[in-house]
């Protein structure tokens, strides 16, 4: 069943077209990675789908709700983890989770369940009483992503979730993301090709606001004639200039 149906989505900033007629369908429970160089339109796409930015044209439906006509219904089924760490700085890990759970309307029992779930997935139990601002960058990112799960979204947007993390912290986050696979629809943007290769069910490649490719890794390898995502990506966005 289709979770996200994007129809000719467009975003124009003055004289710059950030997203140019994007059409795409993503299935329920799928982890879809959006790849692209800086300025390809990945983050703008995520912001439009999560109702943070109004499209200049087109529309998208999230679980049947239009982002244009019914943004409040969309907000009830989605959550987002931004590129930047977004936590309440002086609140402890536990207080951050309580805060987001209460804000999403959960009662005491539901809050307890949500808390335990994110503790289990992200291993946050060991730092539960530490203020967010005193955590390392890796733990802060984990908390930031964990908070996006507290509202129990059906569709989760992860915008460059491992940006700036060391290799160990990145692998730990991969593990956490893999644990979520199948339980919700995830749209992930990333610059790390190995991340997309390790985590995705399908991959989309954007360039200059347009979707160049959408499909499985195998389809990407077949279309590009390459054997890994990085080589295939380079081939697609450079038109073969960087081919070995």
């Amino acid at each position: 069943m289709t979770a996200i149906a994007i129809k000719n989505l467009k975003k124009v900033y003055k004289d710059v077209t950030a997203v140019d007629g994007l059409s795409l369908e993503i299935n329920e429970g799928e982890l879809f990675s959006l790849l692209g160089v800086n300025g390809a339109g990945k983050t703008t796409t995520i912001k439009m789908l999560s109702t943070l930015v109004s499209p200049s044209g087109g529309d998208a439906e999230i679980l049947g709700h239009s982002i244009l006509k019914d943004p409040n219904a969309v907000k009830q089924v989605i959550d987002i983890s931004m590129q930047e760490t977004a936590v309440a700085r002086k609140l402890t890990v536990k207080e951050n989770i309580d805060f987001y759970a209460r804000l999403s309307g959960q009662n005491a029992q539901e809050i307890q369940i949500s808390k335990q779930a994110v503790y289990d997935i992200f291993g946050l139990d060991s730092v539960r009483d530490r203020q967010a601002q005193k955590l390392s960058g890796g733990w802060q990112r984990k908390l930031s992503i964990a908070l996006a799960l507290v509202s129990r979204p059906k569709v989760l947007f992860l915008d460059e979730p491992t940006l700036g993390l060391d290799v160990l912290a990145r692998r730990e986050l991969w593990k956490a993301i893999q644990a979520l696979k199948g339980s919700m629809t995830i749209i992930l943007t990333t610059h790390y090709m190995e991340e997309a290769e390790a985590l995705s069910d399908r991959i989309g490649i954007m360039q200059s606001g347009k979707l160049l490719f959408a499909g499985t890794k195998e389809a990407l390898f077949e279309q590009s004639g390459k054997q890994n995502v990085e080589e295939a990506f380079l081939h697609m966005v450079s038109g073969g200039v960087f081919d070995a």
């Binding site: 999560s50 109702t51 943070l52 409040n72 907000k75 009830q76 989605i78 959550d79 987002i80 983890s81 931004m82 590129q83 930047e84 760490t85 977004a86 936590v87 309440a88 700085r89 804000l103 999403s104 309307g105 908070l147 996006a148 509202s151």
Partner: peptide, 17 residues
């Protein structure tokens, strides 16, 4: 202003608030 700068508010804008 700090909530805006750290993307804390942007995340909350996706909530029902």
């Amino acid at each position: 202003a700090l909530d805006k700068a750290t993307a804390f508010l942007t995340r909350l804008f996706v909530s029902q608030t």
